[in-house]
Design a protein around this nucleic acid. Structure first.
Length: 194
DNA sequence: AGAACGATCGACT
DNA sequence: GTCGATCGTTCTA
Protein backbone atom coordinates (compact mmCIF):
# COMPACT_ATOMS: atom_id res chain seq x y z
CA UNK A 1 0.00 0.00 0.00
CA UNK A 2 2.69 2.36 0.98
CA UNK A 3 4.61 1.40 -2.12
CA UNK A 4 1.53 1.90 -4.29
CA UNK A 5 1.26 5.50 -3.09
CA UNK A 6 4.98 6.17 -3.31
CA UNK A 7 5.04 5.04 -6.93
CA UNK A 8 2.64 7.82 -7.94
CA UNK A 9 4.54 10.52 -9.79
CA UNK A 10 7.51 8.23 -10.46
CA UNK A 11 8.58 7.35 -13.99
CA UNK A 12 8.48 3.92 -15.61
CA UNK A 13 10.89 3.36 -18.48
CA UNK A 14 11.11 0.50 -20.98
CA UNK A 15 14.18 0.28 -23.17
CA UNK A 16 13.26 -1.48 -26.41
CA UNK A 17 15.70 -3.82 -28.19
CA UNK A 18 16.25 -0.96 -30.66
CA UNK A 19 17.45 1.20 -27.77
CA UNK A 20 14.47 3.50 -27.92
CA UNK A 21 13.06 4.55 -24.54
CA UNK A 22 9.34 4.44 -23.84
CA UNK A 23 8.51 6.23 -20.61
CA UNK A 24 5.53 7.40 -18.61
CA UNK A 25 4.72 9.16 -15.37
CA UNK A 26 2.71 6.95 -13.02
CA UNK A 27 -0.72 8.36 -12.16
CA UNK A 28 -2.73 5.35 -10.91
CA UNK A 29 -1.86 2.19 -8.97
CA UNK A 30 -3.45 -0.64 -6.99
CA UNK A 31 -2.07 -2.78 -4.19
CA UNK A 32 -2.54 -6.57 -3.91
CA UNK A 33 -1.55 -8.58 -0.84
CA UNK A 34 -1.49 -12.38 -0.86
CA UNK A 35 -1.69 -12.78 2.91
CA UNK A 36 -5.16 -11.26 3.35
CA UNK A 37 -6.58 -10.17 0.00
CA UNK A 38 -9.01 -12.37 -1.92
CA UNK A 39 -8.46 -10.26 -5.04
CA UNK A 40 -4.78 -11.23 -5.18
CA UNK A 41 -3.69 -14.06 -7.45
CA UNK A 42 -1.59 -15.34 -4.56
CA UNK A 43 -4.36 -15.07 -1.96
CA UNK A 44 -3.75 -17.25 1.06
CA UNK A 45 -0.23 -17.90 -0.27
CA UNK A 46 -1.60 -19.82 -3.26
CA UNK A 47 1.52 -20.67 -5.20
CA UNK A 48 1.26 -21.73 -8.85
CA UNK A 49 3.54 -21.43 -11.82
CA UNK A 50 2.01 -18.07 -12.64
CA UNK A 51 2.23 -16.60 -9.14
CA UNK A 52 5.72 -17.88 -8.40
CA UNK A 53 7.26 -14.52 -9.28
CA UNK A 54 5.19 -12.93 -6.49
CA UNK A 55 6.93 -15.15 -3.96
CA UNK A 56 10.37 -14.05 -5.14
CA UNK A 57 12.36 -10.99 -4.12
CA UNK A 58 10.90 -7.50 -4.51
CA UNK A 59 11.78 -5.23 -7.38
CA UNK A 60 10.77 -7.59 -10.16
CA UNK A 61 8.04 -7.24 -12.79
CA UNK A 62 4.98 -9.50 -12.57
CA UNK A 63 3.24 -9.45 -15.96
CA UNK A 64 0.34 -11.72 -16.82
CA UNK A 65 -2.24 -12.14 -19.57
CA UNK A 66 -5.77 -11.04 -18.72
CA UNK A 67 -9.01 -11.79 -20.58
CA UNK A 68 -7.07 -13.61 -23.27
CA UNK A 69 -5.82 -10.45 -24.93
CA UNK A 70 -4.36 -7.85 -22.59
CA UNK A 71 -1.47 -7.73 -20.17
CA UNK A 72 -1.08 -6.21 -16.72
CA UNK A 73 2.19 -4.91 -15.24
CA UNK A 74 2.89 -5.19 -11.50
CA UNK A 75 5.88 -4.59 -9.27
CA UNK A 76 6.67 -7.19 -6.61
CA UNK A 77 6.89 -5.26 -3.34
CA UNK A 78 7.54 -7.58 -0.39
CA UNK A 79 10.45 -9.81 0.66
CA UNK A 80 10.68 -13.39 -0.54
CA UNK A 81 7.87 -15.62 0.68
CA UNK A 82 5.43 -12.73 1.21
CA UNK A 83 3.54 -12.39 -2.09
CA UNK A 84 2.36 -8.84 -2.80
CA UNK A 85 2.48 -6.45 -5.73
CA UNK A 86 1.42 -3.09 -7.07
CA UNK A 87 -0.53 -2.99 -10.32
CA UNK A 88 0.18 -0.10 -12.69
CA UNK A 89 -3.20 1.20 -13.83
CA UNK A 90 -2.36 4.50 -15.49
CA UNK A 91 0.50 6.62 -16.79
CA UNK A 92 1.05 9.83 -18.76
CA UNK A 93 3.41 9.49 -21.73
CA UNK A 94 6.82 11.09 -21.29
CA UNK A 95 9.07 9.67 -24.01
CA UNK A 96 8.64 7.64 -27.19
CA UNK A 97 5.17 9.04 -27.70
CA UNK A 98 5.03 8.32 -31.42
CA UNK A 99 5.96 4.70 -30.85
CA UNK A 100 3.47 4.41 -28.00
CA UNK A 101 0.74 5.80 -30.21
CA UNK A 102 1.57 3.24 -32.88
CA UNK A 103 1.55 0.42 -30.35
CA UNK A 104 -1.86 1.53 -29.11
CA UNK A 105 -3.64 2.38 -32.35
CA UNK A 106 -1.47 1.28 -35.27
CA UNK A 107 -1.97 3.64 -38.17
CA UNK A 108 -5.50 4.59 -37.14
CA UNK A 109 -6.00 8.31 -36.71
CA UNK A 110 -5.77 9.95 -33.31
CA UNK A 111 -9.11 11.17 -31.97
CA UNK A 112 -10.12 13.24 -28.99
CA UNK A 113 -11.42 10.11 -27.28
CA UNK A 114 -8.20 8.23 -27.85
CA UNK A 115 -6.16 11.15 -26.57
CA UNK A 116 -8.27 11.40 -23.44
CA UNK A 117 -7.96 7.67 -22.72
CA UNK A 118 -4.43 7.20 -24.01
CA UNK A 119 -2.89 5.16 -21.18
CA UNK A 120 -5.58 5.13 -18.48
CA UNK A 121 -5.90 1.39 -17.85
CA UNK A 122 -3.58 -1.51 -17.04
CA UNK A 123 -4.03 -3.15 -20.43
CA UNK A 124 -3.34 0.16 -22.16
CA UNK A 125 -0.16 0.70 -20.14
CA UNK A 126 1.27 -2.63 -21.24
CA UNK A 127 0.17 -2.19 -24.83
CA UNK A 128 1.69 1.29 -24.99
CA UNK A 129 4.97 0.28 -23.36
CA UNK A 130 5.28 -2.93 -25.42
CA UNK A 131 5.17 -5.20 -22.37
CA UNK A 132 4.01 -8.83 -22.55
CA UNK A 133 4.65 -12.08 -20.71
CA UNK A 134 8.06 -12.10 -22.35
CA UNK A 135 9.01 -9.33 -19.92
CA UNK A 136 7.61 -11.19 -16.90
CA UNK A 137 10.16 -11.47 -14.11
CA UNK A 138 12.42 -8.64 -15.30
CA UNK A 139 14.62 -7.19 -12.57
CA UNK A 140 13.72 -3.53 -12.21
CA UNK A 141 17.27 -2.70 -11.16
CA UNK A 142 18.35 -3.73 -14.66
CA UNK A 143 18.43 -1.43 -17.68
CA UNK A 144 15.50 -2.84 -19.69
CA UNK A 145 12.57 -1.97 -17.44
CA UNK A 146 13.16 0.39 -14.55
CA UNK A 147 11.82 3.22 -12.41
CA UNK A 148 13.12 6.77 -12.01
CA UNK A 149 12.32 9.69 -9.73
CA UNK A 150 12.72 12.10 -12.64
CA UNK A 151 12.99 11.78 -16.43
CA UNK A 152 16.54 13.19 -16.24
CA UNK A 153 17.56 10.07 -14.32
CA UNK A 154 16.94 8.15 -17.54
CA UNK A 155 18.65 10.73 -19.71
CA UNK A 156 15.33 12.13 -20.90
CA UNK A 157 14.41 15.80 -21.28
CA UNK A 158 13.16 17.53 -18.15
CA UNK A 159 9.39 17.56 -17.75
CA UNK A 160 7.19 20.64 -18.00
CA UNK A 161 6.12 22.19 -14.71
CA UNK A 162 3.39 20.04 -13.21
CA UNK A 163 0.08 21.36 -11.91
CA UNK A 164 -0.96 20.94 -8.29
CA UNK A 165 -2.13 17.40 -7.64
CA UNK A 166 -3.67 15.57 -4.73
CA UNK A 167 -3.41 11.94 -3.77
CA UNK A 168 -6.74 10.11 -3.88
CA UNK A 169 -7.70 6.62 -2.69
CA UNK A 170 -10.67 4.36 -3.38
CA UNK A 171 -11.78 0.79 -4.01
CA UNK A 172 -10.10 -1.24 -6.71
CA UNK A 173 -11.54 -1.93 -10.17
CA UNK A 174 -12.77 -5.27 -11.45
CA UNK A 175 -12.56 -7.28 -8.24
CA UNK A 176 -16.25 -7.59 -7.31
CA UNK A 177 -15.74 -11.32 -6.78
CA UNK A 178 -13.31 -10.71 -3.90
CA UNK A 179 -15.92 -10.55 -1.11
CA UNK A 180 -14.80 -8.27 1.73
CA UNK A 181 -11.60 -7.38 -0.12
CA UNK A 182 -13.49 -5.75 -2.96
CA UNK A 183 -14.03 -2.67 -0.79
CA UNK A 184 -10.45 -2.23 0.41
CA UNK A 185 -9.43 1.32 -0.59
CA UNK A 186 -6.24 0.15 -2.23
CA UNK A 187 -6.45 2.06 -5.49
CA UNK A 188 -4.50 5.28 -5.55
CA UNK A 189 -4.32 8.05 -8.11
CA UNK A 190 -3.19 11.61 -8.68
CA UNK A 191 -5.82 14.18 -9.50
CA UNK A 192 -5.26 17.73 -10.70
CA UNK A 193 -6.61 20.28 -8.23
CA UNK A 194 -9.32 22.88 -9.08
C1' DA B 1 -9.18 -33.92 -21.18
C1' DG B 2 -12.47 -30.53 -20.41
C1' DA B 3 -14.55 -26.51 -18.42
C1' DA B 4 -14.87 -22.13 -16.08
C1' DC B 5 -13.18 -17.83 -15.45
C1' DG B 6 -10.70 -13.42 -15.48
C1' DA B 7 -6.66 -7.20 -11.54
C1' DT B 8 -9.78 -5.35 -19.59
C1' DC B 9 -11.01 -2.82 -23.58
C1' DG B 10 -13.67 -0.81 -27.11
C1' DA B 11 -17.83 -0.78 -29.72
C1' DC B 12 -22.36 -0.06 -29.31
C1' DT B 13 -27.60 1.12 -27.37
C1' DG C 1 -25.36 1.70 -19.33
C1' DT C 2 -24.49 -3.42 -21.95
C1' DC C 3 -21.85 -6.91 -24.28
C1' DG C 4 -18.52 -9.80 -26.93
C1' DA C 5 -13.68 -10.84 -27.96
C1' DT C 6 -10.13 -14.33 -26.80
C1' DC C 7 -6.85 -17.63 -24.47
C1' DG C 8 -3.73 -18.81 -20.58
C1' DT C 9 -4.32 -20.39 -15.96
C1' DT C 10 -6.39 -23.12 -12.77
C1' DC C 11 -9.14 -26.59 -11.02
C1' DT C 12 -11.82 -30.94 -11.43
C1' DA C 13 -11.99 -35.66 -12.73
Amino acid sequence: METAQKLLGKYIVHRLPSGELLAGRITETEAYVGRCDKACHAYNYRRTERTSILFGPPGHAYIYLIYGMYHCLNFVTEPEGEPAAVLLRGIEPVAGIDTIRRLRFGDAPMTAYRKKHFLDGPGKVCQGLALTRRENGLDLTGDTLFLCDTPEDAGLPSPPALPRERLCAGPRIGVDYAEEAKDFPWRFWLETED
